[in-house]
Design a protein around this nucleic acid. Structure first.
Lengths: 160, 160
DNA sequence: TGGATAATCATGGGCGTCAATGGATCGTTA
DNA sequence: TAACGATCCATTGACGCCCATGATTATCCA
């Protein structure tokens, strides 16, 4: 199994360190681990996107299609690479979140890790709760359309 | 890993020296380091482009595609080579930015190093923030076009 | 089946190393 | 000799690395 699933909430300690949930670490290790995870601010949410090599290659793939020295490439490069931070994982499976990233996601003392398949997100727990509540409502609406819904409600299980 | 990634902000001291971020130095050393970095004003941004041997070869490659003695080649040669400076790296991993380059990028007391894969840029922090903000907006627009390549946060229906 | 034991994982703290930064020294040159 | 540049040295603060603790879960045996 190579996907990030489930949600976990861990604490940020005095040094700004957070443990990556062990199941996520296991996925990262299978995913050609290159010394760290790739992390950047989510484009449309107060959260951080993160993943391993597979995610990095996806970003490269986006740029590979554009000609060198084109305006689009330059802009996309700045937007994609410019925001990306490579976060080293220490011997205990923890990362340090730099201040700019913490600010974007509004992270204070806890981080909720949300598995999204090939990548995962990091949220401030309160904001994620809010988001999840909104998502539930939408799912309720879609349910009628989807018939038997894709997920009955497996999205909780976070340890908080 | 052979690419410049992440962003770092370092200070310019009274003598005009700046430390190159250690991770970037590591990339430069692997990249056939020849005693200095190639640096020139970005063609379309108030920033400086820089890199090692690989970047130099890329510039050569661009020119190689144009016929000798053509106007385009002459112009491009001047545009590309004309402003290139080879900046020596001192024993502590620092470079000195000549005044013309600093002027082009509007560098005052701090420099933001932005990894862009095969090269990196140096920005005045304020200008980079501005540029990044603009780039992110554009990416949001393009996002639908990029579609499943960029996003995987399928809020419903997990990734394949 | 229940309890004891072992293993895994999150969390906190201490310590050594390295990088960034500032200053001093030496050599070169006008 | 004065000014500039380049190399070297020192300080400080951050980061990586190691170990200890506690809690929860899984395993094994009685």
């Amino acid at each position: 199994m190579d996907r990030f699933v489930s949600t976990f909430t861990n604490k940020i300690d005095a040094k700004g360190r957070v443990s990556i949930p062990a199941p996520f670490r296991a996925v990262l290790e299978r995913d050609g681990y290159g010394g760290g995870i790739y992390c950047y601010p989510s484009l449309d949410a107060p959260a951080l996107d993160a993943g391993g090599e597979r995610l990095a290659q996806k970003i490269d793939g986006l740029l590979a299609g554009l000609p060198d020295y084109s305006d689009e490439r330059d802009e996309l490069s700045v937007a994609l690479y410019g925001d990306v931070q490579v976060l080293a994982i220490d011997g205990d499976g923890r990362i340090v979140l730099p201040q700019p990233l913490r600010t974007h996601a509004g992270l204070q003392s806890e981080v909720t890790f949300v598995g999204l398949g090939e990548k995962f997100q990091m949220w401030a727990p309160e904001r994620f709760d809010e988001r999840r509540r909104a998502a539930r409502e939408k799912v309720q609406e879609h349910r009628k359309l989807l018939g038997r819904a894709a997920r009955s409600d497996g999205s909780e299980g976070d340890g908080a």
